[in-house]
Amino acid sequence: MKENGLLLMVNGQSYEFKIGTGPGEVSPSHTLARTLREDLGLTGTKVGCNKGECGACTVLLEGTPVLSCLTLTVECNGKRVTTIEGLEDPETGELDPVQQSFLESGAFQCGFCTPGMIMTVKALLGDMPAPTELEIKEALSGHYCRCISHYHVLDAVGRAIGKRG
C-alpha cells in the first residue's frame, strides 16, 4: 500500500482509501466508526457517546471487540473489520445464530445498542464454548442500554449457546 493510501478489509471486502482531507478521503482524525458509517454506508454501527463509554460502536477488529469511535481509521491499514452487516451469510442472507437469538428473544427495545452487543456476543462465543452467566455479563459490562433489555439479552445469549448444541 502506498504511503498515503489505506487498505481496509471490511466484512470480507477490500476497500482502498486515500489519506487526505479531500472529499471521500480518510483524514487522520477520522475514526473507524465514521469511516464505516460515512464512507462505506455501514450505518449499522451506531455511535452513542462517541467517547468509548457506551459500547454502541463495538466492531470486531481482527476478531476482537473494539470501540470504533476510539479507533483511528489510519491505524487500521491492512486490518480485518467485521460489523453487524457482515454477520449474516452474504449469499443466502441467513442470520448469524447470535442475530437469530436476539431476534427470537426480543432482546432489544429501541435497538440502538443492539448491533454493538451482538458484536460483543459474537466474539465471546467465538472465544468461549460455554461462558457462564457471570462471564456473559462481564463481556457485556461495557454496553449501555437505557431501555433495560439486559434480561432479554442474557436470554438471547443463552439461546445462542443452545443453538450450537
Partner: peptide, 27 residues
C-alpha cells in the same frame, strides 16, 4: 498514541489549551 482510549477522548472534548498538531502512532 497507542491504545488511544484516553487520548482520543481528551481530543474529542478538546480539553487542553493546545491542540496537538501531530499524533505519533507507537502502536
Amino acid at each position: 498514541i497507542a491504545g488511544g482510549t484516553d487520548l482520543l477522548g481528551v481530543l474529542k472534548d478538546d480539553i487542553l489549551p493546545a491542540y496537538p498538531e501531530l499524533l505519533i502512532n507507537i502502536k
